[in-house]
Design a protein around this nucleic acid. Structure first.
Lengths: 247, 247
DNA sequence: TTATATTGTGTCAATTTGACTCAATAAAAT
DNA sequence: ATTTTATTGAGTCAAATTGACACAATATAA
């Protein structure tokens, strides 16, 4: 997005998209956030919808602009349409800190309905880029989220709930893990999303029975224990399951 | 909605809600549709969002205006945001048939992103009321849907898919059936939504094990077979399951 | 050589599911 | 009055799945 486009009527008024971008690193689920220029708040990577652009394409564009990634799992999950979701006083502070042309104020001060998406991306492949309205772009552990603007904390909560439900009838992990990985990493993702510990033998049995994994070579981590086997996703079978649903 | 409000800037531009309202009658799942004034198309009950109204509230208002019902299950399920979802030529025909003031044309000719909701309502309680833009309001069997405008057929398909998935971890039926009903009616709802036949003994066992039903008196239908027992939902337990999810 | 941590396999009972059978019964047909 | 028909609801049983463990294998550190 280019700020100067805001007053040239390039975007649909009153509508935005916000992406909850999940990555996985150090056996932790992380979320990508942007630092507001007021130095006090963080926010979700979001943006507006071009007049001739589909809403899905806008979400993909925002994802690409912040991460450089394309063609990853990006799922619309909820619309946040409360007229009071952004407080006027906070917006005014933010707009002031952005030092924008006065004529742009009316854009930011309007009411926005935002469409929430969540994305699953490979942490290592992301090159976080702040947008023109923010100072920096960084990963945060899911249970150490800083102070967020508006209802963005609610949006993240809601994304987690949606993922938790999708997990029941969709495979997960292909866009979240590197091309090969130990089973334990996949289990940790499930545990973090579900918010509970899983029994390893039972998890392995279950996930292997889906027929979406290929066993590869052993991986010597240097740690003082048996080396785990690495696995990779069988993409064709994975996408088939994603489409048709589990069981 | 009052048509004259359209040019007084009462509504959020470019945004609408569309409700897929499901009812159940004659062992058939039905959808409530409105007849367009062009005499050729039908459409979903939809509307616009007041400047100071939440999106959910707008969907509730549309539902109430068409059915007279409030406080029923109404679930947001998807946003339809393709810029080409409404064809300009069709819109022009529709606007012409509505014989509106010329100044309103710009409202209908703009691009709309619509937020899809589906509702489950008790068929017998609905008093279908056409809106100011339509000729009539009627129920249609789910597999006998007439020609619809725009992407409304896709929206109905998508609502069914969403329901099918929700069925896996949510109870269903409370707002779709009268206060007491035979188990077979509930089974028929499940069968219609899932699009497949279910084994009666197994269905009964499963649904009764949820602990959300109270057995009531026998109901003599006048048919030449054993009279079925009626059941009613235990509302407290039903809503708890709706909130927490099944299993 | 032993200790430690973690992996992958194996077991087994409990639970759930799928595919059936069958007796009960409300009304119509004889 | 008796038989027939259609449908309900209970019961059975093997197969599949799940949950809760035990345990052997093994990569490195002590």
């Amino acid at each position: 997005m280019d700020i100067k486009d805001l007053d040239t009527q390039s975007f649909m008024p009153g509508l935005s998209v916000d992406n909850v971008i999940f990555g996985f690193h150090d056996n932790q689920l992380k979320v990508l956030l942007l630092a507001c220029k007021d130095g006090k708040h963080w926010m979700l990577p979001g943006g507006y919808i071009l007049k001739n652009e589909s809403v899905d394409a806008a979400a993909e564009r925002v994802l690409f602009d912040r991460t450089g990634l394309q063609k990853v799992y990006l799922q619309q999950f909820n619309v946040f349409g409360d007229p009071k979701r952004s407080s006027a006083s906070l917006v005014k502070g933010l707009v002031k800190s952005m030092e924008l042309d006065e004529t742009l104020n009316h854009w930011f001060l309007q009411r926005f309905v935002t469409i929430g998406y969540y994305a699953l991306v490979e942490y290592e492949k992301v090159k976080p880029k702040p947008d023109p309205l923010s100072l920096s772009c960084d990963w945060f552990e899911i249970d150490q989220i800083p102070r967020l603007i508006f209802d963005h904390a609610t949006i993240i909560e809601s994304a987690l709930t949606a993922m938790r439900q999708h997990l029941n009838f969709q495979p997960i992990g292909l866009n979240l893990l590197p091309s090969s990985f130990p089973l334990k990493s996949l289990q940790s993702i499930y545990e973090t999303i579900l918010g509970k510990k899983l029994d390893r033998p039972n998890f392995n049995r279950k996930i292997l029975s889906l027929g979406i994994l290929d066993k590869k070579e052993k991986h010597f981590t240097g740690a003082a224990h048996k080396a785990p086997f690495l696995y990779s996703f069988r993409k064709k079978e994975y996408y088939k399951l994603l489409k048709d649903g589990i069981s």
